[in-house]
């Protein structure tokens, strides 16, 4: 019985590795969120793709079904495709976040500049009044 299982696992090393790999990714993301190194908002995409990978690597036939729908003969290649797509999505999210940050940053720089000039003016008028 045990020998049979071991034999199965050995024959399907790829599956074992991919299950372990995607589980580790999922847990790593959760840990980052827990430690507040990653905002919940930005973890969602990662967790979603992590889940897809776990599901696909556990239910092997599912990957074959997906592959045949898209028209890919070699099933693992479909996994690669999904991986590339997910990386794309996450990168696009990064670009959006960077643009948002840049906008906020620009507004801050402008306001700081205006405030600094304002303070200088106030200090000057305060000095002037003192000397009078």
């Amino acid at each position: 019985m045990l020998a049979n299982l071991l034999e199965y696992l050995l024959a399907n090393r790829v599956q074992v590795f991919s299950i372990i790999g995607s589980l580790l990714l999922f847990l790593f993301i959760l840990k980052l969120v827990k430690r507040k190194k990653l905002k919940e908002e930005y973890s969602l995409l990662w967790l979603a793709f992590g889940t897809i990978f776990i599901v696909l690597s556990i239910f092997k036939p599912l990957l074959e079904i997906v592959a045949s729908i898209i028209g890919i003969v070699y099933a693992p290649a479909a996994l690669l495709l999904i991986l590339v797509i997910s990386v794309f999505f996450i990168l696009i999210q990064f670009s959006i976040v960077i643009s948002k940050l840049a906008e906020g940053n620009k507004n801050l720089i402008q306001e700081v500049g205006i405030l600094k000039a304002e303070i200088k003016k106030l200090q000057q008028s305060f000095k002037d009044r003192k000397t009078e």
Partner: peptide, 16 residues
């Protein structure tokens, strides 16, 4: 004179 703490480009400057 408004001194921007870092370079924004002409658009950011004029908008200030």
């Amino acid at each position: 004179v408004i001194e921007l703490p870092s370079n924004l480009g002409i658009g950011g400057a004029v908008q200030t």
